[in-house]
């Protein structure tokens, strides 16, 4: 059992490692982006897929990480390593604060509260335009994108950095959901009332899920900014809260590799659509609708249901 699971996930990481040497430049760049975004989606999945908390404002954590990293570089002259730490801390702090407040609500109210907090952060980024460069955002200079002596702007290094983040988050998630704490999170998703009756402090576990999820999302945001050299307010806007939901739904909520599969599919679908029309977000709308109507479990969820019951 455990061997199969390890083989699948290490195999995926190995496959992505090999792909680095064979992919043409365009797809090479795409896969690097997809791996960072998949890390973001896995963070989202921890909350939505495993704990059953639907957030509509995850862009705020992604943006907190990205801006924490970017602003500390821009205004305080931090090196990449320190800036990354600031970004991760920003994601962690925001997630802890939002978790403490938003977890007082449940269901639809929780969704709206997260949406509103995210909107407030986005508007704040616009409002402090002189400091954050508002809508335009800012570019992180090539000279600043050096991490432990490695030039992150170099495609090969960038790919491996993205892979490192992806592998780290994937294996951490694998460890977490097999750990007793992860088991309690799944129990909360299935039946919170009953979990509480069994004597687990569900509130603390949910707070842990929100904080861990926000920290992973913040890390993904900070790494994205470092690797691709741009920090902008569009990453804090509503679509970037909807994207992880869509990726996770498509790939399969509550599965480990689902977020990656969903991100991969959706990224290329949007890529294809934007070659045809300006209205490429139409694809997002149709996909969301079809998924809720016909495949609420997503790709990996269906695989698990039919053929692979051992899939974590």
């Amino acid at each position: 059992m455990t061997q199969r699971i390890l083989a699948l996930h290490l195999g995926l990481i190995g496959l992505l490692f090999v792909l680095q040497f064979v992919l043409p430049p365009y797809h090479h760049d795409n896969i690097a982006r997809i791996m960072v975004m998949a890390a973001y989606a896995m963070g989202y999945n921890l909350m939505f897929g495993y704990t059953g908390l639907l957030s509509l404002g995850h862009a705020m954590f992604f943006a907190a990480g990205m801006y924490g990293m970017g602003l500390s570089m821009q205004h305080a002259g931090f090196a990449a390593e320190a800036a990354l730490a600031v970004g991760i801390t920003a994601g962690f702090g925001l997630a802890l604060g939002v978790g403490l407040l938003a977890l007082r609500t449940t269901g639809v109210a929780f969704m709206i509260v997260t949406l509103m907090f995210a909107q407030a952060l986005f508007l704040a980024i616009l409002y402090f335009g002189p400091f954050t460069r508002g809508d335009e955002g800012f570019v992180i200079p090539l000279s600043a994108r050096i991490f432990a002596g490695l030039r992150l702007s170099d495609p090969t290094i960038r790919y491996f950095a993205a892979l490192a983040l992806f592998a780290l988050v994937l294996l951490a998630m694998l460890w977490l959901i097999r750990h007793p704490v992860g088991r309690v999170l799944i129990a909360i998703r299935e039946n919170e009332e009953r979990t509480r009756m069994l004597g687990y402090d569900t509130w603390r576990h949910k707070l842990f899920a929100v904080t861990a999820s926000g920290t992973i999302s913040g890390t993904a945001g900070a790494v994205y900014g470092l690797l691709f050299g741009y920090v902008g307010a569009s990453f804090a806007e509503v679509p970037y809260s909807i994207f992880p939901l869509l990726w996770v739904l498509l790939g399969g909520a509550g599965t480990l590799v689902g977020p990656f599969i969903g991100t991969l599919f959706m990224f290329y679908l949007i890529d294809l659509a934007s070659g045809v029309t300006d209205a490429y977000m139409l694809v997002v709308g149709v996909a969301l609708l079809l998924l809720t109507l016909f495949a609420p479990r997503g790709i990996m969820g269906m695989l698990r249901e039919r053929w692979l019951p051992w899939l974590p």
């Binding site: 639907l54 509509l56 639809v108 969704m111 909807i242 939901l245 739904l249 209205a279 490429y280 977000m281 139409l282 997002v284 709308g285 149709v286 996909a287 969301l288 609708l289 998924l291 809720t292 109507l293």
Partner: peptide
């Protein structure tokens, strides 16, 4: 909510 987000993008686009 997820379905109406889908409708939102469909109408808008």
């Amino acid at each position: 909510i997820v379905a109406t987000i889908g409708l939102l993008y469909i109408f808008q686009q």
